[in-house]
Design a protein around this nucleic acid. Sequence first.
DNA 1: AAATAACTTGACCGAGCAGTCAGGTTTGGT
DNA 2: ACCAAACCTGACTGCTCGGTCAAGTTATTT
Lengths: 231, 231
Amino acid sequence: MQDSAQDSPEAIAALPVGKAAGARQNRSVRIVQRSLARAEPVFAQAGLAGATMASLAAATGLPRANLHYHFGTKENLYAQVLENILALWLDASDSIHPGAEPGTAFRAYIAAKLSYSRDRPFASKVFANEILHGAVHLRSYLGLELRRKVDEKAAVIEGWIAQGKMDRVDPRHLLFLLWAMTQTYADFDSQIAAVLGVPALGAEQFAAGQALIVQLVLRGCGIDPPSPKER
Amino acid sequence: MQDSAQDSPEAIAALPVGKAAGARQNRSVRIVQRSLARAEPVFAQAGLAGATMASLAAATGLPRANLHYHFGTKENLYAQVLENILALWLDASDSIHPGAEPGTAFRAYIAAKLSYSRDRPFASKVFANEILHGAVHLRSYLGLELRRKVDEKAAVIEGWIAQGKMDRVDPRHLLFLLWAMTQTYADFDSQIAAVLGVPALGAEQFAAGQALIVQLVLRGCGIDPPSPKER
DNA sequence: AAATAACTTGACCGAGCAGTCAGGTTTGGT
DNA sequence: ACCAAACCTGACTGCTCGGTCAAGTTATTT
């Protein structure tokens, strides 16, 4: 490890490499992928500092030394877990594109983000934990890729506003609030479950949350008309 | 520490106690209070596991052994920091009471929560971090005090709905979303700042966030009329 | 089937950790 | 002035941690 200049993603992926990189790599790749998936809950529940190599080894089913062989350091393992999650986050906003109607686009986006919260709660928590602690491991991601993505989506929303399809709102803050509302069902599930008096969040709670988020956003932005109730 | 049956809040506060509990206690109390305030940022940035007694000692200006004298264990110190924050959280919802109009009540609540996010970001982060990791240190608080508070506020909102002052929504989920939207400006400030390209969140960002949250909630719940723009 | 690279592992190591303690100092009561 | 009790602290301790390593085993190429 003293000879490696820097731990760039390439260098990490290339840790066990020789000249004959054939089918044997696949085995390693599979083990690495499985380990990353199994390490996710550990980092989610304990954080980077709280997760020990012993607990990670137990979760992955590999001996500690073997984890070090594949990933080098705990930080590297953590960085790769984090990297796996980022792709997910960037993809979620696909439904927000110029050709779409704002109503269907936001509905789809909210549904997609809530699906992640339901199906990959640990990924969401690892991400939330990282940002909570200052996002030191993904400063560049936030300032570059995510920022570009947000600029792109903000432009789409600006377009809808210009076309009179929705009220004038700050598109970036709208995205921040969408993230907050959808991720709260993953990140703060223990709080929501405790307050509701249920052991864990189920389909009902997600459905109720989704309905309310959609209502607040679509009516709040003047996309849907107000309730047919009165007036 | 072996003689103490359990670390109840009383037992913790009573750590350094004799028969003559007079004015000398005050000095200790002041030191403890100041230490709790200074420990907050450390726990916020590093989490419970990541915060070391050495870093806490440096932050409080006390020697490590002295911290142990006043608080016993790191967990006890953390628990007291957490407890200090809970009162804040319960008080924030004062504006939501039966006599109020929903519009002014929600406006005031959003303003109050965002004030906490701006002025006590570390408190918010410690709380968020605790819940993110399963809320093991405040299960009872969530299930009892907070749950009661939420039941109480939910009843108020139900009342407003019954009076036709706002649309029918799930009041509990509305509170969850209010928490999520207001706390995101404290807990995920590094993400928001990075995406916006600013070094740190300022008054502008909080104002923009507040305006949008108010708009989404009041129009989304049918309290405010839709924009006077078109239609 | 021999050679070689990839992979695995138990045992080991030094650093840093939370917590302890004996002995000193300050403080408030009398 | 004297005495406890409260408070303070440097030095110490046992342990857990991340990381290393040499000696294995397994798989693939030729």
